[in-house]
Design a protein around this nucleic acid. Structure first.
Lengths: 138, 138
DNA sequence: TCCGATTAAATCGCACGCGATATATATAAG
DNA sequence: CTTATATATATCGCGTGCGATTTAATCGGA
């Protein structure tokens, strides 16, 4: 029953540490870390519904809706009701949003660098943690 | 440049997953997950300053002060100015706060269970992530 | 066709978490 | 002793995150 023995705390604090490392890199793009993750998902596949983004990011609409409105206000995405199913909102990159991908090109390398880990090691650790996440959500 | 390849996202989402697993267990204790972490630190060593808690938890006073006030309002801790150095606030467990440790006894086991991992494996992964955190903060 | 059930977002209230700043106390330098 | 500096918390504003609820649209069955 000691904090240093908690796997959860290691993850909790490592997550904060990542946020700190990302901050100066993302300031250049005027993005917060969660907003950056949304953009990554959209750069990967444009024109997704709020629900689809939520599934991939493990976030609720109550979190995404305000975030997406901020990204829209900044001119990076557009939110449009689906013509076929008006319940859904489709999120699309604007030209500016698409262009931002270039500016963000160097970010992952800067992060990988800060981890001080070998690429293969990063992949392995990432997979272990993804497996842990799956167990927890089971 | 794909979300699934991001170590940071694995950690980000695993952290959320942990929070979800903790929720039902901590509801019994009327604690949030970050509040629980504070209590763990205090159960380990009572009568600490805000700064000391912040060092161990990697949190700022701007985060801790409101949290500690809530824990105080719930009757789990007392906040008292240090007589010798009036700049410091000492955080002490109340009788109720100390007693809560017994009620929380089963929590770590429930969590370890949800990870689906062997104890030794948990320790190893925890150490790897703690090392990563150290690199990131460097 | 019509009405109840389901689904997708949005809204609301609350609790983090932090950067920037303010306030109060302690320390140091002369 | 006095003033400048440093330190410890607290405050403020903003952006997540989520559970609970609401709103609007769609689907399903009689």
């Amino acid at each position: 029953m000691q904090l240093d023995n908690f796997l959860c705390f290691a993850i909790y604090s490592a997550n904060h540490a990542f946020t700190r490392v990302y901050k100066p890199l993302l300031d250049e793009l005027d993005l917060t870390y969660p907003q950056y993750l949304v953009m990554v998902v959209l750069w990967e596949k444009d024109d997704q519904t709020v629900g689809s983004l939520g599934e991939k990011l493990f976030l609720e609409s109550s979190t995404l809706t305000p975030m997406l409105k901020r990204l829209e206000a900044m001119g990076y995405v557009a939110r449009v009701r689906d013509k076929v199913d008006e319940r859904q909102v489709r999120v699309r990159l604007t030209e500016t949003g698409r262009a931002l991908k270039e500016k963000a090109r160097g970010v992952p390398l800067g992060i990988a660098d800060a981890t001080g880990m070998e690429p293969a090691e990063i992949v392995r650790l990432k997979q272990e943690i993804a497996a842990l996440r799956a167990s927890l959500l089971r």
